[in-house]
């Protein structure tokens, strides 16, 4: 662990700077690595699709990189015209959440339609069956 901490690097004004990792960074890195392993494991067991796997692995790799080098978000934020790196993260977070909610809404709508179809089928089947009796 000591070695990892010492080899932590960050980019500051184009120069690689070495320093100590904050506790939150260490926690996030461990969390990211564990989650990636977990996602890959359930993918191997065939419980999630390749698409979902790639999505989640990419997301956690991103978190891994950001934890390792928090200032990289400031660099990106400046490029995009947003003041601070944290703001960029929050904006991405909110937009991502909205997107997920919309996806969920459509999925629920779809499931509702399927339930309707089932209920209709059951109702008609039972009526025909009752008449045969």
């Amino acid at each position: 662990m000591v070695i990892i901490i010492l080899f932590f690097s960050d980019v500051e004004e184009g120069e690689v700077v070495f320093g100590l990792l904050g506790i939150y960074q260490i926690l996030f890195i461990i969390l990211a690595v564990l989650t990636i392993f977990f996602v890959l494991k359930i993918y191997n067991n065939g419980r999630i699709s390749l698409k979902t796997t790639v999505l989640w692995v990419c997301l956690w790799i991103m978190l891994f990189v950001i934890s390792l080098s928090p200032d990289s978000t400031t660099f990106l934020a400046n490029r995009l015209g947003i003041g601070r790196g944290l703001d960029l993260l929050i904006i991405i977070g909110i937009l991502g959440t909205y997107y997920l909610i919309f996806r969920l809404y459509l999925k629920i709508e779809n499931i509702n339609q399927n339930i309707n179809k089932l209920v209709t089928e059951i109702a008609i089947h039972n009526e025909n069956h009752d008449n045969e009796k």
Binding site: I115, N116, V119, T120, I122, A123, I124, N126, E127, D130
Partner: peptide, 16 residues
Amino acid sequence: ILHHPVNRGLGAALKT
């Protein structure tokens, strides 16, 4: 008589 086992709303009932 068509019986919906669960409530699905007016639209679904009309469709059935």
